[in-house]
């Protein structure tokens, strides 16, 4: 295949992955809609998906009814297929341009979202209880991919001189991994905030929240992913400093991107401390984690698109 065909293939796969993820969102919705209710289950009103045969079989407490499991499996399958197409976007990009496919903001953001999806898939395969999170992971994924396609898209091209270094593979890859894992962690903490309020009110309120995993397991998920992401993020920062020393003549210079990476690193450090400190456990710590991801996101969007610094490789005008 020629480079042009590969580039076209990459763009087609991007649309396909958005489509597959959207279908997965629908399937996850169905899974939640037919899910069991907490103890005093009222009569199910299979809203959203009428004429679904499994809808009536969803009253037994305990294990999920078959319809739910079926929808869950379909959703997971669609997510996995979407992730394959999503990975294909980057592979085809890389082949078309003959370089690592994270040379601009479009590619970087696409890769971050892919890491988040893969992290979710791995977690959901290992502990099936987390599959109920699917909607809350996949819906932001679809929204961000659409936004990436609309606002960040650029044609593939060669790298500028400053990016032609083997540190690109080390620094940017670890930044992508760290950010993607933090995305999952941030979603878990945001859901924890919703779910813990629901539990504090005695399990009364929105039916959707009732089917989200318990606050305790969300808190654990957020912590475990943050613990996994934090050393990777730290490594990304150190690798970036080593690269900056050879590219810009100093290892740290408070360039806006460096400053915001420092800020988010400090916030995540605060989260890890907060979670083991009396008075900060629970909701305050979860807020810190959400703020931390907000910083990562801000770093990606604001610093590349609004401020001017040395990290202006976004390719977005």
């Amino acid at each position: 295949m020629t480079a042009d065909q590969l580039a076209d293939l990459s763009d087609t796969l991007f649309s396909s992955s958005v489509g597959l993820y959207s279908l997965a969102v629908v399937a996850f919705c169905a899974q939640l809609a037919f899910g069991r209710r907490p103890a005093r289950a009222r009569e199910l009103v299979g809203s959203g998906a009428p004429a679904e045969p499994g809808a009536t079989a969803a009253s037994a407490p305990g294990a999920d009814p078959p319809a739910v499991r079926r929808w869950g499996r379909v959703a997971m399958l669609l997510t996995a297929l979407g992730a394959l197409a999503h990975a294909g976007v980057l592979v085809a990009r890389g082949l078309a341009t003959d370089r690592l496919p994270w040379g601009n903001m479009y590619e970087f953001a696409t890769a971050v979202v892919l890491v988040a999806v893969v992290a979710f898939l791995v977690l959901a395969v290992r502990s099936p209880g987390l599959r109920h999170l699917g909607l809350f992971v996949l819906a932001p994924v679809v929204v961000s991919l659409v936004a990436i396609g609309l606002f960040l898209y650029v044609e593939g091209g060669p790298l500028v001189a400053a990016l032609r270094s083997s540190w690109l593979a080390v620094h940017v890859t670890s930044a992508i991994l760290g950010s993607g894992v933090f995305l999952v962690s941030g979603i878990a903490s945001a859901l924890y905030l919703v779910r813990s309020r629901y539990e504090a009110r005695g399990g009364d309120g929105a039916d959707l929240v009732a089917r989200v995993p318990s606050a305790a397991s969300l808190d654990r998920l957020a912590h475990r992913t943050a613990v996994f992401g934090f050393p990777i993020y730290t490594f990304a920062m150190i690798a970036g400093a080593i690269w900056a020393e050879s590219a810009w003549g100093r290892f740290w210079g408070w360039d806006p991107k460096e400053t915001w990476m420092f800020i988010s690193w400090v916030v995540y450090a605060a989260y890890l401390h907060a979670r083991t400190t009396a008075g900060w456990r629970g909701r305050p710590a979860a807020w810190v984690n959400v703020v931390g991801f907000g910083m990562v996101l801000f770093n990606l969007l604001y610093v590349n698109m609004v401020s001017t610094g040395l990290h202006s490789y976004g390719g977005v005008d």
Binding site: G253, T259, T276
Partner: peptide
């Protein structure tokens, strides 16, 4: 105390913010 350390971490993050939003002589 740990809770002071957390507050100081927040202050550090907050203190760095103007350094990226306003132009800096060092840059």
């Amino acid at each position: 105390a740990m809770r002071t350390a957390i507050v100081l971490l927040f202050l550090l993050a907050l203190a760095a913010v103007p350094g990226s939003l306003l132009p800096q002589r060092s840059l």
